[in-house]
Amino acid sequence: MPDLPRKKVGIVACSGEEIAEGTVTRLAALRVLEQLRPGDTVTICLPLFLAGGEGDRAFARFYPTIAVDGCGERCAARATERYSGKPAAEVVVTELAAGCGLAGLHGRRRLNEAGQRAVDLTAGRVAELVDELLERKGWDRRRGSFEAEPPAEAPAAPVAATCSCGAGIPVQKVVIDGRTVTLIGLPLIFEQLREAGKAPSDHLARELLETVRIYNPIPADEDETYAMTLLREYAAFWGGKEPAR
C-alpha cells in the first residue's frame, strides 16, 4: 500500500479578526505548527472550505482536526463540521482562559500581556491534544472519524508541517461508467505506486481498488468498474511519467 501521510493532525483556527481572542487562535495555531509540533501538524484557512476545492473540503476527513475558536460562537468548529468533517477535538479560548482565571484579554491588533498568556495557554492545550490524537490509532479517512477497533497502522512518514492553503488534499476526477467521480488522494496513490516501480497490470488493479477504498466510498456492486477505471487511469499516468531507470 502506498505510504501516504498517516500521522498528522489538522489545526483550523477561527482567526476571527474582530476580536482579540481570534488573534489568540491564530498565534497559538502558528506556534504549534512552527515550534511545538512541527512535522506533526498541518493547517488550512477556514474560508477554503467554501472558497477552495474538494481537496480542501476533504481536510477534516483526511486529518483528525482540532478546531481552535476564540469565542462561544465556535465558527471554526461549526464550519469545519458543516463543510469538511466533525473536528476530533475543540479548544475555545474564552473557556480556556476563564478556566485558568485569566481575565482582561485585549488587543486584536497587538495583544496585551493577558493576551500573550492566552496564546501560551492555548498553544499548550492544542499541543497536548495533538499528542493525544497522534497516539490514538484507527483514523478512518473515508468516514472522518476514529474506528472503534483500531487496525494496525504503518509508522508515520516525517513531513514538514506547513500552511496547506492551495494544496488541500490532492484529488482527481475520473469518469466511471459515464459519471464523473472525484477521488480523494488518487494522485498520491499513483505517485507512490510509480515510485515503487509497479507497472500497470491486472494484478495491480485489485491493489489500486483497495487503496482507493481507504479514502473513498466505493459502492459494493461497482468494484469491477472502479478497478478497470483505476487501472486505465494509472496506465495513462504511468505512460506519461514512467520513472527514469
Binding site: 477561527c14 482567526s15 476571527g16 479578526e17 474582530e18 476580536i19 481570534g22 477556514l46 474560508p47 472550505f49 467554501l50 460562537e73 465558527c75 471554526a76 461549526r78 464550519a79 458543516r82 463543510y83 486584536r108 491588533r109
Partner: peptide
C-alpha cells in the same frame, strides 16, 4: 490584517467596519 486594522482603527474609523471571514464562512 495590519492594513485593515489601520483603516478601521486609525484612518477611517467612522466610515468603515471590519467583518471577520470566519463569520462569513459560517453564514452569520
Amino acid at each position: 490584517r495590519e492594513a485593515a486594522y489601520e483603516v478601521v482603527e486609525d484612518l477611517r474609523p467612522a466610515a468603515t467596519q471590519l467583518v471577520a471571514l470566519s463569520q462569513l464562512v459560517l453564514g452569520d
